[in-house]
């Protein structure tokens, strides 16, 4: 599945890992993330991400 990079801090969202600290299970694609999900490192919103 496509990884996405935060353009603010460089964090990479990897669907295989999800974001368990914030209730996102492994296997969740970037598109499936809720609209209010934010970068777990810097707090930037989804619009700040671009495909890796």
């Amino acid at each position: 599945m496509q990884k996405y990079t935060c353009q603010v801090c460089g964090y990479v969202y990897d669907p295989a890992l999800g974001d368990p600290d914030n209730g996102i299970a492994p296997g969740t694609s970037f598109d499936q993330l809720p609209d209010d999900w934010v970068c777990p490192v810097c707090g930037a919103d989804k619009a700040s991400f671009e495909p890796e």
Binding site: V8, C9, V41, C42, G43, A44
Partner: peptide, 9 residues
């Protein structure tokens, strides 16, 4: 007031 990335997380 949290100010993430201004200039560290």
């Amino acid at each position: 007031l949290e100010t993430r990335m201004v200039h560290w997380p």
